[in-house]
Amino acid sequence: MALPAHASPLERLWRRVFHLLCALILLFLIAPILIVIPLSFNAEPFFTFTEKMLALDPTGYSLRWYDLLMTFGMFAPDAPRDAAWWADMWANSTWLRAAKNSIIIGVFSTLLATFLGTLAALGLSRPEMPFRRAVMAILISPMIVPIIIVATGLFFFYSATGLAGSYLGVILAHATLGIPFVIITVTATLVGFDKSLTRAAASLGASPATTFFKVTLPLILPGVVSGALFAFVTSFDEVVVVLFVAAHDQQTIPRQMWNGIREQISPAILAVATILVVISVALLATVEILRRRSEQLRGVTPG
């Protein structure tokens, strides 16, 4: 909204101040995320910019912390980097093992949350759904209830049922935490869904299953994938439940980071953080593309 030509000098000044204020707030939002990227290439074990880094001296930068991510936990990190070294890393690197665990747990909990959540969102967006409001409130509540309460409850429940320390226990818990995100995104896609399309399919002789797979699913797929990505990120970033119910050797990336921050924070954490920031940029871009695609498909104007 441009200022009209008759704006007073005071208004023009205020507009400047307002823009500066917004720029500062946006900087507050984004700077902490970007600051870790250059610092992760620090050649020194410091958390601040060294003079060499500020002078853009190449010797001030190094990949040593990324290297440490691979070698940490290996049997023979200093051996020559041949096939045996890579095999050692693949099998023993602490961070790599944590990443594998995170991905296994993330993928299975996402599949579970997406399948159940999409099914439920389809039911919830039907006008004839009974107790719609109450059911919705229950299904969204894992997002609202403080995580420490969920973790405490699951700790007692899993100790009693023998799920403590198992992959299944963590996967079920993470699926529960991801479900609200799937429901919110899929029901948002189903708002304004043109019911006449399914009726047309039915009148042309398609069975409900055919109608769903050929008509409904392609239209809501962008929403389903966005929801799945949300669920995956939720699991991939979850640490409290893992701390409470997972076995001691079940490390995940957030748990490893948590330990790193609490005990001895080293720039290796910043290297992990940088990798995670890159992943989140990729995920955000994917979700944006999906959102636009969904709007195109449904003929909704953006905004």
Binding site: V36, D237, M257, I265, I269, A273, L276, S280
Partner: peptide
């Protein structure tokens, strides 16, 4: 979209 632990580390 960025991990909570990353933001806290920052």
């Amino acid at each position: 979209w960025t991990s909570l632990l990353v933001r806290t580390t920052s």
